[in-house]
Computed example of a mutant assay.
Amino acid sequence: MKTIAASEAKQGFAALIDAAAREPIAIQRQKRDVAVVMSMQEYERLTRLNKSEFQRFCDRVGARAVEAGIDEAILAGLLADDA
């Protein structure tokens, strides 16, 4: 991933957008990474990936709950006890 200074990003914003269409660009301020500029396609791909991974996690937790004999009624009772 290419890295540029924040001042360079500000001065060459159009070029930054063009470069981000090809690969994510890290922006640094005082030698610290503070932001990343990426294409909309890459952002949407990462968002879909996160949603898919979260769904797989929920499915695994749900399967373990079923194996342990936990159902909706038990969960509702547990939640009511916490209220």
Rank of each mutant, 00 (worst) to 15 (best):
G69H: 00
S7Q: 12
K51Q: 15
G12S: 08
M38F: 00
F57N: 11
A65W: 05
Y43H: 04
R60W: 02
F54L: 14
A80I: 05
E23P: 03
V34T: 10
Q41A: 12
A6E: 13
E72Q: 09
K10S: 10
A63F: 06
A73R: 07
A19D: 00
K2L: 05
Q11D: 10
A68R: 12
G69D: 01
E44T: 10
G62C: 11
K2A: 04
C58G: 06
M1T: 15
M1D: 08
A83W: 10
I25Y: 06
C58E: 11
E67N: 13
G62K: 12
L49C: 07
D59N: 11
M40P: 08
D33I: 15
R22W: 06
G12H: 08
S7H: 08
K10W: 07
A83C: 13
M38I: 08
F57S: 12
F13V: 15
E53D: 09
V61E: 07
Q55T: 11
V61N: 00
F54N: 12
R64P: 01
A65P: 02
G77T: 05
Y43N: 02
A15Y: 04
A73E: 04
A83Y: 09
D81A: 12
I70M: 00
Y43P: 01
R22H: 06
D18N: 10
M38Y: 01
I27W: 02
T3N: 04
V34P: 01
F54T: 14
L75E: 09
R64T: 13
A68F: 02
Y43A: 08
V61F: 06
A6R: 14
D59L: 11
A35R: 07
G12N: 11
Q41C: 03
K51I: 14
A63Y: 07
L49I: 12
E67W: 06
I4W: 03
G62D: 11
A20C: 05
A65M: 14
D18Y: 03
E8Q: 10
G69T: 08
D71R: 03
M40H: 12
I70R: 00
A76V: 00
I74E: 00
V34C: 05
K31D: 15
T3R: 11
D71K: 04
M38A: 03
S7A: 13
A65S: 10
Q30K: 15
L49K: 12
R22S: 08
M40N: 14
A19C: 03
A65F: 02
Q28G: 05
E23S: 08
A5Q: 15
E8Y: 02
K10V: 15
T47M: 10
K31Y: 09
Q30S: 15
S52R: 13
E67K: 15
T3E: 07
